Amino acid sequence: MANHFSLLLVLAFVLVVTAEDCVVDLKGIIRECKPYVMFPASPKITPASACCSVVQKVNAPCMCSKVTKEIEKVVCMDKVVYVADYCKNPLKPGSDCGSYHVPSQGQ
């Protein structure tokens, strides 16, 4: 339960910071995608179409610039990459999302 509360606090902060310069439906991401991006790292679960519809609207580079160490403690970045790829809004291989380095294809 503490993990969920921590995530909500962290994401609420990101929503305030992000609202000004990133086009993102953070409430939609939390509502639709939370089960697909939270720790544990395994298993990776195929996201629902509702999650993908939100992910497809995300400005990924801008959103990644707002990812903090606190977010990375509760959100599995490997799963974020998986969900973004699956939903056809992939993170650029070799780029950074917070402190997470997005693997090059084939890694």
Results as ranks from 00 to 15, higher is better:
residue 106 G to M: 09
residue 8 L to N: 13
residue 97 C to H: 07
residue 58 V to T: 13
residue 66 K to A: 02
residue 104 S to L: 15
residue 82 Y to D: 10
residue 75 V to E: 04
residue 59 N to C: 10
residue 59 N to I: 01
residue 59 N to K: 12
residue 102 V to E: 13
residue 61 P to Y: 06
residue 73 K to E: 15
residue 87 C to I: 00
residue 82 Y to L: 13
residue 41 A to L: 13
residue 106 G to S: 08
residue 24 V to G: 01
residue 1 M to E: 14
residue 45 I to Q: 09
residue 51 C to I: 02
residue 32 E to R: 01
residue 36 Y to M: 02
residue 5 F to H: 15
residue 24 V to F: 02
residue 103 P to R: 00
residue 96 D to N: 12
residue 100 Y to M: 07
residue 12 A to C: 09
residue 41 A to T: 06
residue 107 Q to H: 11
residue 99 S to L: 03
residue 20 E to F: 13
residue 4 H to T: 15
residue 96 D to I: 06
residue 43 P to R: 08
residue 36 Y to R: 09
residue 60 A to P: 03
residue 70 E to K: 03
residue 81 V to F: 08
residue 83 V to K: 08
residue 52 C to S: 10
residue 107 Q to Y: 09
residue 50 A to E: 12
residue 35 P to S: 01
residue 33 C to E: 08
residue 61 P to C: 06
residue 3 N to L: 15
residue 63 M to W: 14
residue 57 K to Y: 11
residue 83 V to D: 00
residue 53 S to Y: 04
residue 50 A to W: 00
residue 64 C to K: 03
residue 18 T to D: 10
residue 6 S to A: 14
residue 33 C to Y: 00
residue 82 Y to N: 05
residue 88 K to F: 06
residue 103 P to L: 14
residue 99 S to G: 06
residue 97 C to I: 07
residue 96 D to C: 13
residue 100 Y to P: 10
residue 37 V to G: 11
residue 15 L to F: 02
residue 57 K to T: 14
residue 69 K to L: 12
residue 15 L to Q: 15
residue 58 V to M: 10
residue 4 H to N: 15
residue 88 K to T: 02
residue 48 A to T: 15
residue 6 S to F: 08
residue 14 V to Y: 10
residue 49 S to C: 05
residue 47 P to D: 04
residue 62 C to R: 01
residue 16 V to Q: 06
residue 105 Q to C: 07
residue 52 C to F: 05
residue 14 V to T: 14
residue 27 K to L: 07
residue 93 P to E: 10
residue 32 E to Q: 06
residue 83 V to I: 11
residue 44 K to M: 11
residue 78 D to A: 04
residue 106 G to I: 07
residue 72 E to K: 04
residue 49 S to I: 06
residue 32 E to T: 00
residue 32 E to V: 00
